[in-house]
Deep mutational scan, measured.
Amino acid sequence: SKTSNTIRVFLPNKQRTVVNVRNGMSLHDCLMKALKVRG
């Protein structure tokens, strides 16, 4: 089974995003990807 960790990230202006960290990806990469999608 694939394991994925879901991390809630609290952003300024009362924004919130959820990042799924996959195996083999660093938290930083996942964060940058999530913020790019939002931006």
Rank of each mutant, 00 (worst) to 15 (best):
V21L: 05
N5D: 06
F10H: 10
R22L: 10
K2E: 05
P12M: 08
T17R: 08
N13K: 06
N13D: 07
S1Q: 14
N13I: 03
K14T: 05
T6A: 05
G24C: 13
R8P: 01
N20T: 09
S1C: 15
R16G: 03
S4T: 15
K33R: 06
N23Y: 11
V21I: 08
L31V: 06
N5V: 09
G39C: 08
L11V: 02
H28S: 10
T17N: 04
K2N: 10
R16P: 01
S1H: 13
M32L: 12
R38G: 02
M25K: 15
K14N: 12
H28Y: 11
A34T: 03
G39S: 13
F10L: 04
N5K: 11
L31T: 09
I7N: 01
N5Y: 07
K36S: 14
S4R: 15
M32T: 12
V37A: 04
V9M: 00
I7S: 01
S26C: 11
I7T: 02
L11R: 01
M32I: 11
V19I: 13
D29V: 09
V37E: 00
H28L: 13
A34G: 12
G39D: 13
T3A: 13
V21G: 06
V37W: 09
V18E: 05
C30S: 14
S26T: 14
L35Q: 00
K2Q: 11
L35P: 01
S1I: 13
G39E: 06
N5I: 05
S26H: 08
T17S: 15
K33L: 08
K36Q: 05
K33N: 00
R8H: 03
S1A: 08
L27M: 04
R38S: 03
K36R: 13
I7P: 05
I7M: 06
R8L: 06
V9G: 00
C30I: 08
V19T: 05
L31P: 00
L31Q: 01
L27V: 14
N13H: 10
Q15H: 00
T17P: 01
T3S: 06
Q15R: 02
N13C: 10
H28D: 12
V9T: 08
V21A: 13
H28N: 12
I7F: 07
K33E: 02
T6R: 07
K33Q: 03
G24D: 12
R22C: 06
K36E: 04
G39V: 06
A34P: 14
I7D: 08
N13Y: 14
V18I: 10
D29Y: 09
N23S: 13
P12Q: 03
S1R: 13
H28C: 13
V21M: 03
C30W: 01
N23T: 11
S4D: 09
K14Q: 09
R38H: 01
A34E: 04
T3I: 15
G24S: 15
P12R: 02
V9L: 03
R38C: 00
N23I: 10
S26G: 04
R8G: 02
R16C: 03
L31A: 08
G24Y: 08
Q15K: 04
R38Y: 08
K33M: 08
C30F: 05
L35V: 03
T3P: 15
R16H: 15
F10C: 02
T6V: 15
K36N: 11
G39A: 06
N5S: 15
F10V: 02
T17F: 08
N13G: 05
D29G: 11
I7V: 07
N20S: 09
V9E: 00
M32A: 10
A34S: 11
S1T: 14
S1P: 15
V18G: 01
R22P: 13
L31M: 05
S1G: 11
G24R: 14
R8S: 03
M25L: 15
D29R: 08
V21F: 08
R22F: 05
K2M: 13
T17A: 03
L27P: 00
F10S: 06
R38L: 04
N23D: 12
S4C: 12
V19L: 14
L35A: 08
S26D: 04
G24A: 15
N20E: 08
K33G: 04
R22G: 10
F10Y: 11
V21S: 08
V19D: 01
N5G: 08
S4N: 11
N20D: 04
N23K: 13
P12L: 01
D29N: 12
F10P: 08
V18L: 02
S4I: 12
L35M: 14
R8C: 03
C30Y: 02
K2V: 06
C30G: 07
S4V: 08
K36T: 07
I7L: 15
V21E: 01
H28Q: 13
V18T: 05
N13S: 06
M32V: 11
V37G: 01
T6L: 15
N20Y: 10
R22S: 05
N23C: 14
P12T: 03
S4G: 12
M32S: 08
R16L: 03
K2R: 11
K33T: 02
N13T: 05
V9A: 14
H28R: 12
H28P: 02
L27Q: 00
R38P: 02
T6M: 13
V19F: 10
M25R: 14
L31R: 00
S1N: 14
M25V: 15
L11Q: 00
K2G: 11
V37L: 12
Q15P: 02
V19A: 10
L27K: 05
N5T: 14
R16S: 04
S26R: 09
F10T: 08
K14R: 09
V18A: 04
V9K: 08
N20K: 15
L11M: 03
V19E: 08
K14E: 10
Q15E: 09
M25E: 05
N20I: 14
L11P: 00
D29A: 11
V18D: 00
M25T: 15
R22N: 12
V18F: 04
K36M: 09
D29H: 10
L35R: 00
K14W: 08
L27R: 01
T3N: 06
D29E: 07
R38Q: 08
T17I: 01
T6K: 04
S1L: 13
T6P: 03
M25I: 14
K14M: 10
S26I: 11
K36D: 08
V19G: 02
Q15L: 00
K33I: 00
C30R: 02
K33D: 05
P12S: 01
K14I: 04
A34V: 02
N23H: 12
N20H: 11
T6S: 07
N5H: 12
R22D: 04
M32R: 06
K2T: 09
F10I: 00
M32K: 12
K36I: 06
G24V: 08
S26N: 09
G39R: 04
V37M: 10
R22H: 10
K14S: 08
P12A: 02
